[in-house]
Amino acid sequence: MTTVFTLDNIITVLRQTSILFLLSQGLTVVILTGNIDFSVGPLAALCGCICAQMIVHGFPAGLGIVSALMTGAAFGLTNGLLVGKLKLPSFVATYGMSMVASGLATIVMNGGVIYGLPADLTALGAGTVGILPVPVIVTGITFAFLYAVLKKTSFGRCVYLTGLNQSAARYSGINSLMTILAAYLLSGLFGAAGGVVMTARLNAADAGMTEAYGLKIIAAVVVGGSSLLGGEGGVERTFLGALVLTVISNIMNIAGIASEWQNLVFGVIILLIGGLDYSRHHRS
């Protein structure tokens, strides 16, 4: 047992957690507004692919990253408009967008896979500053940023109030359309960031690279204890959720439990925690 809690191990776990956490951070904001975003995973893949493709075609890494982030922002805003303006049920709209994203990712990759990226990008995934891996630092910074925005600004409060009771928020003069747009924008941006870091970490890109994350992204938020009804929770909880899921995955891997069981477990977790949360609120 003594070896489990060495600094090295802790850092390894943090590194493993970082990409999942990055992806589910933005989603947390959307879930806090009482909506959902199914497109984070495929969008991350798309953005990672765009970034890798641009770099392979001779553009500087910075431009690749910016393009990826812009793609993420565009998808996020589209999601926001579909949900906030057209009032589509968020799971339908974002499910559709996820199909578009994964389709586009296949096109960007031309059906292939990219291996071997220049060092200025891979540093983002494999590099370290002192003892800390870069992905951990990136995730840490974005976490701090998002935490501050959600807990310390008026905008953050609007996110919570919209999720707690959209009707009451409207009757308080809160512009829920802008809030929802901004939430999806953040979700898109974090999806893009997650995709870029993942590409850098893998030193490769392919259209299906985030498939393994699939449900885990939502599960991390739910396990963290943010309510799917909106308005309760926060990114700090998502951090715990992502950490727990990573550790569970690790344990299951070590114990030799097939990855299929893992998805089953995540499905049951969502049903159980989502259901408990919902019935708790309905009873009161």
């Binding site: 409060r157 919570y160 109030l161």
Partner: peptide, 18 residues
């Protein structure tokens, strides 16, 4: 209950909501 307050939120949050 539906329009005036965010029932699940704290008193303080409701006070400042508008």
């Amino acid at each position: 209950k539906e329009q005036g307050l965010a029932l699940r939120a704290s008193l303080a949050w409701n006070v400042t909501s508008a």
